[in-house]
Amino acid sequence: NKFNKEQQWATYEILNLPNLNEEQRKAFIDSLKDDPSQSANLLAEAKKLNDAQA
């Protein structure tokens, strides 16, 4: 299913963002699990935070 693929991709991407700390990473991944339909939005937020902390 589409959300499952998006969720897996977003999880992979978030795990590989270098500037997030473990707590932030875990929070994003927990949110992905809670609502896979928000995968794209959550990934965008994670990338923004990652860039802000660069």
Rank of each mutant, 00 (worst) to 15 (best):
A52Y: 09
S31I: 06
N19T: 03
D51V: 11
D35S: 10
N21F: 10
T11H: 14
Y12E: 07
Q7M: 14
N21P: 03
D51R: 10
L20F: 01
D35T: 08
D51F: 14
A40I: 11
N1D: 15
N1S: 02
L43S: 03
N41A: 11
Q38P: 01
P18G: 06
K5Q: 13
S39E: 03
K48H: 07
S39P: 03
L17G: 00
K48T: 09
Y12T: 05
N4L: 12
E22F: 12
F3S: 13
F3P: 15
K47Q: 05
T11G: 03
Q38K: 08
P18N: 05
E23K: 12
A52N: 09
T11F: 15
S37E: 11
W9F: 12
L32P: 00
P18T: 07
A52S: 08
A10M: 04
Y12F: 13
N1M: 03
D30A: 13
E13S: 10
A40D: 05
D34L: 15
I29E: 02
E6F: 14
A44Y: 11
E13T: 13
E13W: 15
S39A: 13
L20G: 00
E13L: 13
D30N: 14
T11R: 08
K48I: 11
E6Y: 13
I29D: 01
E23L: 11
L15I: 07
E22H: 10
D30S: 14
E13H: 14
S37K: 08
K5R: 03
Q53Y: 08
Y12I: 06
L17S: 01
F28T: 01
I14F: 03
N21L: 11
E13P: 01
E22V: 08
D34E: 13
I14V: 05
P18D: 04
Q53K: 04
T11S: 09
K5Y: 05
N41K: 14
N41E: 09
N16D: 04
L15Y: 09
Q53D: 03
L42S: 03
E13Y: 13
L17R: 00
D35H: 12
D35F: 13
L43F: 08
K26V: 06
W9N: 05
D51Y: 11
N4D: 15
Q24R: 02
E6A: 06
L15G: 05
S31A: 11
K48G: 05
N4M: 06
L43M: 07
N21V: 05
Q8Y: 08
N4S: 07
R25V: 06
K47I: 11
A40F: 14
Q24V: 04
K48W: 08
K47S: 05
A54T: 10
N1T: 04
S39Q: 04
D30R: 15
S37I: 06
A46H: 00
L49K: 04
N16S: 09
L42E: 02
E22Y: 13
L43Y: 09
P36M: 04
A54K: 05
D35R: 07
Q24E: 03
Y12H: 06
L43A: 09
K47A: 05
S37H: 06
E22N: 11
W9D: 06
A10V: 11
W9V: 10
